[in-house]
Design a protein around this nucleic acid. Structure first.
Lengths: 234, 234, 234, 234
DNA sequence: GATGAATGAGTCTTCATTCAT
DNA sequence: TATGAATGAAGACTCATTCAT
């Protein structure tokens, strides 16, 4: 549930940070782009603050265990006032997740469909994914851990064509071009890669030791070495 | 939260059911009549039933989103009656997690400290972990997903000496004996392996296609190939 | 809304009483018929009390304007405790209405299908309806005034085959047998009779002056005189 | 509460719509776009629109169940903006009721104090009342159903000198002049007449069958026949 | 072993209302 | 004439928990 109190077991370290910021104007709401430096916050800023606080609390305690009261307290407003910005609590979860999801998938696709042979792209995809994930660790944590708490309709909306399929296709492409071992099950390999990288949200802590780049390099090394065909290695 | 409705993105498969214990459609609180005229359950049987039902519901909806009412309904008793068996709701979560955790860790240790060189043991550890995880997918899901919802005291109790450390030490041993590449960061590698395997609870579905053994073989192949030193490979 | 504060205009007097009592075990609930004279109220008694209080408050302030807090206060319990007895607030409205409705319709049918010619039965039906209505003025008020606030499903359930149709058919029977004037539109006449009698809940007050019998006699006199055919009058 | 969903029982017809002002399906808060590019409504027009919409919604859902949000949505403005026109929600109810009430009473008085003997005036009063009520069915519904929801002060203000008294006095006059049966209790008779006519708002539907005139004729026939003295009838 | 009845705090959500702009 | 942003109180409903029987 929590980036800062993950289980030590099956992969844990301790005590985290959050650095990403959620953006995006909410669905049906015109936003006045009025003066920016007034002490009184504009609605737009408030909305971003709200998403930020929500993401942080959802990541820390879990969606179900976070009450609107908690969020309102943190924002210094009354819980009823939140309903000026949202229609249901689910809206908050949705906006937080939609944000990282869309950007993340787009980012991922840019790499997997970019230049280079399959192995190169795999390497970059792993490193890029790791970096994105860590740069947006809070929202990512919410996405990865609380996805199933979304209302069914929204869960479905976001389910289309995601990371796994892209990665699987990339690996298959590598097999076709001979750069990746043919005996590998592309689906399994894709799931292994994504499992290893996604799991980061369970143990990542502020760069006590390894930062995003170091992690990305290590992970891509392992997987590339694990998947590459002997011929291409040479 | 849910073994059967994981996000498609960062590593999902699709729609099916968990396989370890008879799973239930979660629509509309129906009371299981299955255990109505049984000769009269002993207290011990009732307790196991309670843990079973709890595990299933925690895996399906998440701990925070599962009420004692839900559980009692499923058992065909009143929620107040649950307090004959437990002192607080947290007891249920604790018992479910403690079960898989202890057995799982013991299992893991048996392999990592068993016979063979480090690479052999790594291979067996991955395959064994995958199999255990899938054989106990419901409880494992609860363990992996709801660990942070445990009361602080119990979280701590279970946190000691886990999988990561054992695996890291195994890899280091391999580096010491020369069977594993020295440029690998053992901690990172351990986290990659556990991430890939643990993540299984997010996408595993009834053996439509790949069963535990196939998955174990593929995963261990990838990681062994990725970590082994050229010398030992030859 | 209210038997005790009806508008003076289109027909009002002032300040009322309540004398009916709601009964009926609620839908899905077994009721222990345990000891009756314990100082501690049994659940059955509590349920009746709850319906009674609800009826009174719905009649006084209106359904929508009555909060569960009001009801709980009157009963000396916490509002959350009411949910031991009901599933939603609508249950209370439904039970109150269902009670008077079923009994009332049955009562009415007994008379309209009883012995005597149509005019006799009309006379008795009016008097019986007036009496029943006044004897159950509180629940009747709720029924007549708050019916539309019922959830759609339940509104429908109770809508079948009601008073109007029975009365219309009785009048038609009278026309067929020649005791009621043929130029009368039976539907209109039925609606006139029911309007006049139902409206009583808007102005009836404790027998300051006219009691149920007197009112029944006056009303039946007017309508019988208004509908009877000259031949039968003679 | 509702002219279009009255209980079938104690006097109902069935399913249709009210007819005085264009009624609206109540599903899902849609904002009427009908008044979007009009040349710019004057404040007076807006005020009338507001009263119209309020009346319609109060008639449809009941006063207490209608929120200012609903009304604002329908008008295409924000709920806070309503406070330019009103001071409290009660103002809306008051204005709607005051309108029909004053005009209706004046209308009624014009007839009961007009030319003709008591029986003639009674006949015209019934027909006139029925017509007025149906011509203004929405506001009348609000008046008849929601009167008690008015704030105490305003309830009192409107309570003085109403229909019942005028009608009772007319009947007494008829008894005095010998055209109405002496054994009739004038108060009861007045209440019967007003009950029958007022109740119309509970069952009236768009002139599927009977229109205002037909209803008026039938009702006045019944009551005149029921009250007239044998001597005057001859 | 379990029920029946309740508690008290908390859940999400809606309300009428305010007021600076 | 309105909007945008909030308030504060109350709404219905749910929760984990208790305890006498």
């Amino acid at each position: 549930m929590n980036a800062s109190a993950g289980p030590k077991a099956p992969g844990g370290a301790d005590d985290a940070t959050t650095s990403d910021s959620a953006s995006m104007p909410r669905s049906g709401r015109k936003v006045t782009t009025s003066n920016r430096q007034s002490p009184r916050k504009s609605g737009d800023e408030r909305w971003k603050e709200l998403l930020d606080v929500s993401a942080r609390m959802f990541a820390d305690r879990g969606y179900a265990a976070t009450s609107l009261q908690h969020i309102a307290d943190e924002l210094g407003m009354l819980k009823g006032s939140l309903y000026y910005y949202i229609k249901t609590k689910d809206d908050l979860l949705y906006e937080v997740i939609r944000g990282v999801y869309w950007e993340g998938v787009a980012n991922f696709r840019r790499i997997t469909t970019g230049p280079g042979d399959a192995v190169d792209r795999l390497e970059h995809a792993i490193q890029g994914h790791v970096r994105y994930l860590i740069d947006n660790i809070t929202a990512t944590t919410v996405f990865l851990h609380e996805f199933d708490q979304l209302s069914p309709g929204r869960r479905e909306e976001l389910s289309a064509l995601g990371y796994t399929e892209q990665l699987r296709d990339l690996i298959r492409a590598g097999q076709a071009e001979g750069s990746i071992r043919p005996e590998i099950d592309a689906s399994m390999a894709a799931l292994a890669v994504l499992g290893a990288t996604n799991w980061i949200y369970r143990w990542y802590r502020d760069p006590g030791s390894r930062g995003p780049d170091e992690i990305g390099r290590q992970f891509s090394d392992i997987f590339v070495s694990g998947l590459v065909s002997p011929s291409r290695k040479a």
